[in-house]
Every structure is written in C-alpha cells, then in structure tokens.
Amino acid sequence: MEHTHEHDHPITGPKTYMTILGALVVLTVITVWIAQFDFGAANTVVALLVASIKGALVALFFMHLRHDKFNAVIFVGGLFFLGVFLIFSLFDISTRQTVLPSNLKEPVQAFPGAPLGKPVQPGTGMPKGQAPVVPE
C-alpha cells in the first residue's frame, strides 16, 4: 500500500499562507495590468499563463499538493485529459476548412442552393424566410 505521508510533514503555518496570499494579490494586479498590452495572438496565452501561476500557488500551498504527490498525480491527470479533449477537438475544428479532398478546390456547400456563410433554415437548407424546395 502506498502512503502519502501527509501526516508526517510539518503542518504549514500562517506565515506561509500569508506570503502566498500576498503573491496571489500581486499576481491579480499583474493580470489586470498586463491586459492593457497587446501581444497579438498571444494575448490569451499570456492571460492563461498568469492565471496558471496563480492556480499553481493555490494548488501547491492552499491545497497542500506539494506534500501530497499521489493526489497531485490525480489532479494533473485530470488536467491532462482536459487538454486531450481540447487539442483533439481542435484537430478537427482548426483544419476543417483548410484540409480538403485533393480534387476539391474550395469548401463543399452543405446544401446546394444555399448561400455560403449565410444563415439557412434547419432541415431544408434554404435561406431564411424562403420556402423549401420539395424534390420530386
């Protein structure tokens, strides 16, 4: 049986927690401050990076994960599968328009007759407000 040795570690005291809270508040200020600058496509990445530093502090100190390796594995494992979900979905979402069968030069129109990129009625494929064409 594995033991996480939670009890064997000295109990973290108020001083450490105080320091962490200070760091978190400072990082919140940085989050707001940094949002003024435009990093182009990296904007979200930068914001998420700062958030992740804050999240790591909360997880490691407030949630005691630095003394709790086993549960840290569980938690990081969960985040890993969330990453799989996002990235594998993006395999499709981000390549749907760019990767086409070799004999097609432009995106396939889902419903022939419907305008590309304009709203259509569900089911009929016709532009909104137009009567559906009933095939013979």
């Binding site: 599968f81 799989v84 594998f88 395999f91 499709d92 390549t95 749907r96 328009q97 760019t98 990767v99 086409l100 069968p101 889902a110």
Partner: peptide, 21 residues
C-alpha cells in the same frame, strides 16, 4: 480517450482529424 471521433467520419469532420482518429 484518443479515438472518439471515429464515430464522426461522415459527419463533416475534417479529413486531417479523420485520418488521425
């Protein structure tokens, strides 16, 4: 967890994703 989109080959998914899955 890495194979789910093989249910979607004909759903209008990108070919790139289809090949990977």
């Amino acid at each position: 967890f890495l194979v789910w989109a093989h249910h979607m080959f004909t759903a209008g998914m990108s070919l790139f994703a289809g090949a990977i899955f």
